[in-house]
Nucleic acid binder design. Structure first.
Lengths: 336, 336
DNA sequence: TTGTAAGCGTTATCAC
DNA sequence: GTGATAACGCTTACAA
């Protein structure tokens, strides 16, 4: 490996001068600069980031902690889009992303590992708060995506508003018997969406039979199937279902079809996320769209500010959602 | 930050002994071991990986270079699954994944950056060979996914065989007018699948009108739409279409439907990849499944061997594919 | 404008 | 079993 010593020897300058050239310091002659740069090129010199990190205490890496409970890791259709957007943004500032091993299940172990790696900041992408560990004592710039965390930046969608949008829309279509397939209530997003659902229903003076709220688990296709199955078994079936996640919604639609019913003619379905498939399925899924692009971008901006100590107040940042009307909902007048 | 010096001071031992304990070296007394470990716990000591890397010349990081030409980065439905599988495997051996910035478009710049980071190995996830740079001179353990590269390990599906499976199946269903929507011929996979298609057609003594082969570009939904559109405008339309990628296939199906035709009653469609949506669309897509799990696993194993200098011959490793029969294909007898 | 030398936190060599 | 000490490749006071 070639080092600054090699460059120094080759050019006749000291390593200090070489280093200064490499780091664009002011007081170096043009001549020195030229010679050094030429030597760098000729010898194919590449600075060693470990050495640099050791000396400067700055790694130019951002640690990424990914959701585990969903099992798919970075193949997750929503999170992968968010993190891609995040990556695009931090790349502009020369940061690389370090996806750390999570075989250590414990949060604390993960922190230790991130400290070990000397990352400049951390982005936590998960909707689940495993255990309550106060982040203020983990003294490291951190941003949470998809859930708020005490003492840290966080960026997430306006989940409650999303539910409101969904319910209002269904109400406007004349639906009164509206059910809700929730996500597991251990997840912040799922809780918020459920709350929003109840609030919106209340607003319209609509009662919610307890059987109309059913837990679909961790946003999975299978969970949606099971939940919808239960809903269909009810004697007084809902005419519309607001599902807390798109994949669950697809599972629900599948079950409805299997039961010989149609979407939206017999039952209207509305999802949450707007994953890429949503527009391609049949019928195209009406859903509450989360702005993955913006979530990624905002969380990156927040984290970079924090790293550069420009961080202001560490609050949750709420990203607006939007109702995407496609073909999985229908006015009650036209049903049956 | 607490260092081994702090541990040394606290325990009364030298940093050498501390280091030995930390690295499980043989010649240390049980007593020393216990004291050191206790101090580590008490002080919340975390080793500094940069220092360690500097001293050992081993970073325990694997660099990840991701496809760019598709625009979606790690949100890619196929690649994200492969890399997740890869990650799961290398995690077992304590490696973290470093996703490097690719704003430097040039391959050479990327290499430099990876060298700079001191990664122990590199996995390149892309189906496109940007430019011809010989990897043998980039002296670093590397594995390519989805395309072969001279002088490096590579893991990819048996693309030709996939085409054969598809054509044979369609032939068996009685189809004789079979078209092929290819991927851009700059991609290895696309070329192989196209070759396989031609070979298989030849085998059955089926002629391929030149208009029956149309380029759908980089496997995108839109590309599939456009390609299918051209196919539909033909006076002598095909009864079946083998599409080189699932997303393209979905686009193609969409266009078919928009033209007032049905899949599979009017036209049979078969895709390639088996992305998660494939089973959820309508009709569920018959497709050639790539074993993402195995591709990720194999490439990880190959790379780790190379890193540990157990690397044997650096050849391409071909992963078997499988035809997944769903509902987008139909026997010609039942058509119309 | 340039150079000397200390320091970053480890591991590794070698003597005790 | 244990401990000095050099080395890894770089940045950065401080001097010159």
């Amino acid at each position: 490996m070639t080092t600054i010593y090699d460059i120094a020897k080759k050019t006749g300058y000291s390593i200090t001068t070489v280093s200064k050239v490499l780091n664009d310091y002011p007081n170096v002659s043009e001549k020195a600069k030229a010679k050094v740069l030429a030597a760098v090129e000729e010898l194919g010199y590449t600075p060693n980031s470990s050495a640099r990190t050791l000396a400067t205490n700055k790694s130019w890496m951002i640690g990424v902690v990914f959701a585990e409970h969903l099992g798919v890791g970075m193949a997750h259709p929503f999170f992968s889009e968010v993190i891609e957007s995040f990556k695009k943004h931090v790349e502009l500032y020369n940061y690389d992303l370090l996806f750390v091993s999570r075989k250590m299940g414990l949060k604390e172990e993960t922190y230790r590992h991130l400290k070990h790696r000397g990352v400049d900041g951390v982005v936590v992408v998960q909707s689940l708060g495993d255990d309550a560990l106060d982040f203020t004592e983990f003294n490291m710039p951190t941003v949470f995506i998809d859930m708020p965390e005490k003492g840290a930046h966080a960026v997430y969608s306006d989940n409650k508003q999303g539910s409101t949008l969904a319910v209002d829309y269904l109400y406007g279509l004349g639906h009164r018997k509206i059910a809700h397939i929730t996500g597991a209530q251990t997840m912040y997003t799922a809780v918020e969406r459920a709350k929003g659902f109840e609030l919106a229903m209340e607003k319209h003076n609509l009662s919610i039979p307890s059987k109309y709220i059913v837990d679909g688990g961790y946003y999975s296709y299978e969970g949606g199937r099971e939940a919808m199955f239960r809903l269909l078994s009810l004697t007084d079936r809902p005419t519309a279902v607001f599902v807390s996640g798109d994949e669950m919604a697809l599972g629900a639609i599948k079950v409805i079809k299997e039961a010989g019913l149609r979407v939206p003619e017999d039952i209207s379905v509305i999802g949450f996320d707007d994953i890429p498939l949503a527009k391609h399925v049949d019928p195209p899924l009406t859903t509450v769209k989360q702005d993955k692009e913006l979530i990624g971008h905002q969380s990156a901006a927040l984290l970079l500010d924090e790293i550069n100590e420009l961080g202001k107040n560490r609050n949750g940042k709420v990203i607006p959602v939007q109702l995407i009307k496609r073909q999985s909902c229908m006015s009650v007048d036209h049903m049956w």
